[in-house]
Simulated assay, not measured.
Amino acid sequence: MRHLRALCAIADTGSLRKAARQLGMSQPSLTTQLRRIENTVGGRLFSREVTGSRPTPLGRSVLNRARPIVAEMNALVSEVRLEVGQAAGEALRIGSTGSRAVVGWLRRLRARFPDADTTIHIDVSANALLEMVAAQQLDAAFVHEVEGTPLRVPEGVRRRVLLAREPQFVALAETHPAADAPVVRLTDLADDQWMVDPAGDGEGPGLRRVLTAAGLNPRVVYGDYLTAADLVASGEVVAPCQPTARSRPGMVVRPLYGDPLTVGLYLASRAPDAGGAAVSADVDALFADLETAYLEIAWASDAYRQWLLRNDSPLVRVRDARTPVPLADIGLAGPSDGA
């Protein structure tokens, strides 16, 4: 079963690196495992191409038999866990792509459901999280979708919009010539090397699309965002980042002029007619706590708070309805270049 899961993960992600991360193992270990499987079946199951790993005709044949087996096993495991959870008390399993809102979300959920065993699963791949929701391995997941590169939403999964359009800012070295500007233009970064995490669904293609539309063709390299932060601070690269990201020594975070890079933010859960959640928790409550947690970190960022206000974001109205605050008290500035 472990081997079948590995094959499905490679096929679904199209990448040994992404599949290894999804499976919680190193890429060399997964590569070794794939070679053993191929030696066992007597042929290559994936072709290694520049764009990733693609199933060979033999691979497609094996996958056609493997997928139903994996699906049945996932369903069996989910049912057993549900029965165990019902016997021992409620379990609340949530997932998220990387977000600073997760800490506040968890804190609120544990306060709301003190008797539930609340766990969090973090994965850079939104598609992987959606598959886990579909398989009832997660009750809900907070995911983002890069504009222009839609996610694969499995049947039986519904999404509720937290924010239809979140701007992506840029992280650059504090010594960068554009670092002193309140808003940075893409042309200010024309000579820079960009870095994105290839395991983030749609992030590489999304960035390429935006750079091409701006008439730019800089070098784009790939790496995880923890490594990127150090490289940004050293001046080696610039990188797109969430608007709630905080500056750190040697690195600043700035809005991009015209908001060329945006993502949609969603809470994904099972549709009621597809089995619903494995817990009695109301999805409305999960969403309300996520919304509050997100607002908390959004308002802590001066640049992002100004963006929300200037763009008349629905989140501003949500916040005002909950905790009305005069605009003068939160430093509303007049329109500026790039607002």
Rank of each mutant, 00 (worst) to 15 (best):
V153W: 05
A71P: 01
V77N: 10
L186W: 05
P57D: 13
L151R: 05
L63S: 08
T119L: 00
I122P: 01
S125N: 04
A116W: 03
A75H: 10
R159Q: 15
V124D: 10
G156L: 08
R159N: 13
D188H: 07
V103D: 15
V70H: 01
D191Y: 04
P55E: 11
Q136M: 09
L109G: 01
S99Q: 00
L63Q: 10
V124G: 10
V102G: 00
V133I: 13
L129E: 04
R160S: 12
D117T: 07
F113I: 00
V124P: 01
L189C: 04
L130E: 03
V103R: 10
R152Q: 15
T149C: 06
R108V: 00
F113V: 05
A66T: 05
V70L: 00
A135E: 15
F169Y: 14
P55Y: 06
P154Q: 12
G95N: 09
T175F: 00
F169D: 04
H144C: 14
F142P: 01
R108G: 02
R110N: 07
V103Q: 12
V124F: 04
R67N: 01
A75I: 03
V184G: 03
P182S: 05
L189A: 08
S99H: 02
L186A: 13
M132G: 07
A178M: 06
L76D: 12
L82A: 13
S61P: 00
V153G: 10
E155T: 13
L186R: 04
I122A: 03
D180W: 05
N74M: 11
N74W: 08
S96Q: 08
V146D: 04
M73D: 13
V62F: 06
T118R: 00
A91K: 10
Q86G: 15
I122Y: 02
H121D: 14
V77F: 06
Q168K: 10
R110I: 03
I122M: 09
N64P: 06
W105T: 01
S99W: 00
G59K: 05
R54C: 06
P55S: 10
V170W: 02
V143S: 08
V153L: 13
E174A: 13
G148F: 09
E72V: 04
E79Q: 11
L138G: 08
F142V: 03
G95M: 07
H121S: 11
Q86Y: 06
D188F: 02
E145T: 11
A171F: 05
I122E: 07
N64L: 12
R110W: 02
A88W: 02
E145Q: 15
D180E: 14
M132R: 15
A71D: 15
G85S: 04
D115C: 12
V161E: 13
L172P: 12
L92Y: 01
R158T: 14
D180C: 09
I94V: 15
L129Y: 06
A134Q: 15
G156P: 12
R160D: 14
T149L: 02
E79F: 00
T97N: 11
Q137W: 09
R112H: 05
L92N: 00
E145Y: 06
L106Q: 00
V62G: 07
N64D: 15
V153T: 14
A178H: 04
R158G: 13
H121R: 09
E83G: 02
E79H: 05
A173G: 15
L186P: 07
G98Q: 10
D192C: 14
